[in-house]
């Protein structure tokens, strides 16, 4: 899985919770996981998609008229089997209700678009974070972008779900200042149910990335756990992860509270509604942090971590 040339579905600036300092995020499209609580569902498919934002539609009918395949019966009702993804409808739509999710961009284009942010990223000790989706599905492309960024003095972080082929990741890790490593459900069977795959590889990848850090062959690794009530917040889950983190040698974790601000995106893409999940309260956040602490793991809120110095200042260039 994973074509060498990924689609990018958004660049977002002034982000303060995804690595040190102020960061710009590059969202890669395509993810091998299918976590039921996902709030970036537009990242799942590696292919371009069309979203329909009903609240913007003015029912002008241009999309219906212009579609060469007659794939749109009425506004918002697009027959995915007929659609050839020519995006004529998106072009024609005056309101932005029809939107294209995922655009091909060269590394140079991405960097050019990020460049106005560079002074702020540098001054704040921030940088660029690759996220998605799963950027590690596209290690060659990500490496190219990271190299360009580093050549201009911009530190790069990777946020990963951990399910990737470790052999292909190597050149990329050499360019990174930090890896934010998402951990979710410890139990393999549960993980398969809730996230759509086994998690052996994820745990192995975590271990070997930390190993590489220790050997000076990779950037610091920082685990993050999304706290989803009823799914990842059980004491057993937290204790098991704490055990692994201790064992691996990363006695710290960011606990990211679940939110449902992305739920509406499912409707845009015509996906069935996800499960009805609750946002954790302050008490639940504190309880999770306390549990980690009792297991010897320091827990942080997003944006409040004390990242190792290498993550902000950048390591000595490994790739020259």
């Amino acid at each position: 899985m994973g074509s060498p040339e990924p689609l990018i579905f958004s660049l977002q600036h002034f982000c303060v919770h995804d690595g040190p300092g102020i960061r710009s995020l590059v969202f890669f499209k395509g993810c091998p996981l299918r976590c039921v609580w996902c709030q970036n569902v537009e990242s799942w498919k590696a292919e371009a998609e069309i979203g329909f934002k009903a609240h913007l539609c003015i029912a002008c009918g241009r999309c219906v008229e212009r579609c060469p395949e007659r794939a749109i019966a009425s506004p918002g009702r697009r027959d995915a089997n007929r659609c050839r993804l020519c995006f004529t409808c998106v072009e024609a739509c005056p309101s932005g209700a029809m939107t294209r999710v995922g655009v091909r961009r060269t590394p140079e284009e991405i960097v050019a678009e990020l460049r106005p942010e560079f002074p702020l990223l540098r001054d704040s000790g921030g940088g660029v974070t690759f996220t998605g989706g799963e950027p590690a599905l596209f290690p060659e492309f990500a490496t190219d972008v990271a190299r360009l960024l580093r050549s201009e003095g911009i530190p790069v972080a990777l946020e990963t779900g951990g399910l990737f082929n470790p052999e292909r990741l190597n050149p990329l890790t050499a360019e990174l200042q930090l890896i934010l490593f998402d951990i979710k459900v410890f139990d393999g069977e549960q993980h398969r149910l809730l996230c759509g795959s086994e998690n052996m590889v994820i745990k192995e990848n975590l271990r070997s990335l930390v190993q590489a850090t220790r050997l000076g062959q990779g950037p610091p690794v920082w685990p993050r756990l999304p706290l989803v009530p009823g799914m990842t917040d059980g004491p057993a889950n937290i204790r098991s992860w704490a055990g692994l983190l201790r064992d691996v040698g990363t006695p710290f974790v960011t606990v990211v509270p679940y939110h449902h601000m992305g739920t509406v995106k499912r409707a845009w893409l015509g996906l069935p509604a996800g499960p009805d999940l609750r946002v954790p309260g302050d008490g639940e956040m504190a309880a999770a942090a306390g549990l980690f602490a009792s297991e010897g793991i320091r827990a942080y809120h997003p944006g409040e971590e004390d990242f190792p110095a290498e993550a902000t200042t950048g390591r000595a260039s490994a790739s020259g």
């Binding site: 579905f9 958004s10 977002q12 002034f14 982000c15 303060v16 919770h17 995804d18 995020l25 969202f27 709030q39 970036n40 537009e42 990242s43 934002k53 609240h55 913007l56 932005g96 996220t131 946020e159 993050r224 960011t254 990211v256 939110h259 449902h260 601000m261 992305g262 739920t263 509406v264 946002v279 997003p302 944006g303």
Partner: peptide, 23 residues
């Protein structure tokens, strides 16, 4: 801004205002 979350800014707001308020 929320960790790891892609917010399409103004497009998203009418729908997520309640969530923003809750949060």
């Amino acid at each position: 801004r929320v960790a790891g979350y892609c917010a399409y800014f103004n497009d998203l707001q009418p729908d997520v205002q309640d969530e923003i308020i809750d949060r």
